[in-house]
Computed example of a mutant assay.
Amino acid sequence: MADATTIKGGKVRVLLGTLPVDPEDPIVYAAPCGFTSKTVTLSKALEDTQGVSCTDPDAVSWLLRDAVSLSISVSGEGVLAVESLPAWLAAWKDVDSVPVKIEVEMPTTLLTFTGNMHVESMEWTAPNGRRVTANISMQSDGAMADVTTP
C-alpha cells in the first residue's frame, strides 16, 4: 500500500491583492507576514425540503436537500507582524471586499482560488511580557474562481 502524498502548511498561502492605479495593470498579490496557521473552509449552503411518500402519506419522510450557495472562508493565526498590520487594517476598513488569492501548492499542481473577500474580524491577544498574536477571519464575497495548473 502506497503512502499518501501530503504537503506542509507553508504550501497553503493566503495573499491580499493591491488594486493598481491603472485599471489596465494586473492586481499585485502578496502574503502578509505573520500567519503560523491557516484554515480554509469551502462551504455549501443547503436548503431542506421534506419529502413525501405517494403510497404511504403517514410514513416518516426523508429530507431532500438542494444546494443554494457556495462560500469560502479563511481564518489565520500567528504573530502580529508590524509589517503586515497596515495591509490588514486597510482591508478591514474597506467598505468593499478586497482581492484575495488562496494558493495550495502540491507536488505536481497548484490549486488557486481567486476572488474578493471581506476581512470579517481581527483579534489580537497581548499577554504581558510575551508576543502579541493575531487571529484574522475572512469571508468570500461572490464567486471565487478556482484553477488547477500543472
Rank of each mutant, 00 (worst) to 15 (best):
G34C: 05
W92E: 01
I7D: 08
F35T: 05
P32I: 04
K38T: 14
V95Q: 12
D146W: 14
A31H: 03
L110H: 01
E105R: 08
T5P: 08
S37Q: 13
V40K: 15
V68R: 11
E103D: 13
E83L: 02
V132S: 07
T41Y: 08
E24P: 11
M1W: 09
A67R: 11
L80R: 08
D25N: 12
S71I: 03
L42V: 03
F113V: 01
A45H: 12
S121W: 00
L70V: 07
M106N: 14
P127K: 03
N116H: 08
I72Y: 03
T108E: 09
L46R: 11
A45Y: 09
S140R: 07
P86K: 01
A45V: 04
E77M: 04
L85F: 02
Q50R: 14
L19F: 05
G76H: 05
T36A: 15
G115A: 02
D94A: 15
G115P: 10
T148Q: 13
N135C: 08
D94K: 14
S69T: 14
P86S: 03
L89R: 07
E123N: 13
P99A: 09
T6M: 03
T125Y: 00
P23K: 11
K8Q: 15
P127G: 06
G76M: 12
D146F: 15
S75F: 00
I102H: 02
P99M: 09
T6V: 10
K44A: 14
K44I: 14
C54L: 10
T133Q: 00
K38E: 13
A143T: 07
R131W: 00
L85C: 00
S97V: 03
L111F: 12
E103R: 15
R131S: 12
V82N: 04
S121V: 08
K101T: 09
T108W: 06
P150A: 12
M122T: 00
T41H: 06
S69F: 15
Y29A: 04
P99W: 06
H118Y: 09
S121Y: 01
M144Y: 04
V14P: 13
S37M: 13
A4M: 07
V52S: 14
I7F: 12
T114G: 02
V119P: 01
I27R: 05
T49I: 08
L111C: 15
M117G: 13
S43K: 11
R131I: 01
T112Y: 10
T55E: 11
S137H: 11
R131M: 10
A126H: 07
L19H: 04
G115R: 03
D146P: 05
S71A: 15
G76F: 03
S61W: 01
S140G: 10
V21L: 07
V14H: 06
R13S: 12
G17I: 05
V98N: 02
I136Y: 06
T133I: 00
L63S: 11
E47F: 06
K11T: 13
V21S: 03
L89S: 03
P20M: 11
A45L: 10
C54Q: 05
S137P: 06
A126G: 04
L16Q: 03
V74Y: 14
L89M: 02
V12H: 09
R131H: 08
M1Y: 05
V119L: 08
E47V: 14
K93E: 15
V28K: 07
S61G: 09
F35D: 05
A91Y: 05
K101H: 06
D48I: 01
T18L: 03
I72K: 06
W62A: 09
G78E: 09
V95L: 08
S84M: 00
G34W: 00
T109A: 10
S75P: 07
